[in-house]
Amino acid sequence: MTSFLIGLFIATLIVALFTMRLYRLILWYSLNSLSLALLAITIGYSINDNTMILSGFLTLVLKAILIPYILKKVSVKFGLSRQIKPNVQIHYSIMLIPALLVFTFYLAEPITNMMVSNANYVAISISALFLSLLLMIEHKNIAPKIIGFLTIENSLFLLGTTATGGMPMLIELGIFFDLLMAIVIINLLFHQEEEEGLE
């Protein structure tokens, strides 16, 4: 189950990299968050960690539903371009993404030798981090950049849940805190950009 969800997580992320429509991108982000939430809930059940289950539900509500919704609203409101063409050409991405995945597994290989479990999760999280960065690099428009930023948070969260087997509540709060702040700022920035456009 865990492996399946992680696979789903990474798959949605990769698909998001090739997406050329904004709403589709938001959808992929939402699915990505969903798999993350389910993952947290599953792991939480298996190790009997209530906080993790709670955070899983929070993720579900916030990231899988609320944030995509808001994002969509915002983009409709500002009439953001729905066409988002990646800067990096597809054939380059096709080469780069598998190379990255292979690299991260290779990177995590010594960890497997040292610790019994979780090394692959670390690898997946790191590659998720790379992929989210790639998402940010790929696009010039602001909206996909924000989604890239959000997927970085997701990969962080993935790392937190899988690799450490549940973190102290503090950090989880931290992530949400960060997330909220980020959204606020992004909104404000949109606002500013808008103003600038009008002038």
């Binding site: 990177l107 940010m136 690099i137």
Partner: peptide
């Protein structure tokens, strides 16, 4: 400015590479 993220990406990649190669084996 749009390259900043790309730079960070490459830097991260090379740092991790070097750690893997030179530090581990």
């Amino acid at each position: 400015q749009s390259r900043y993220a790309a730079m960070i990406f490459n830097m991260l990649l090379s740092v991790l590479f070097s750690y893997r190669i030179f530090v581990h084996e």
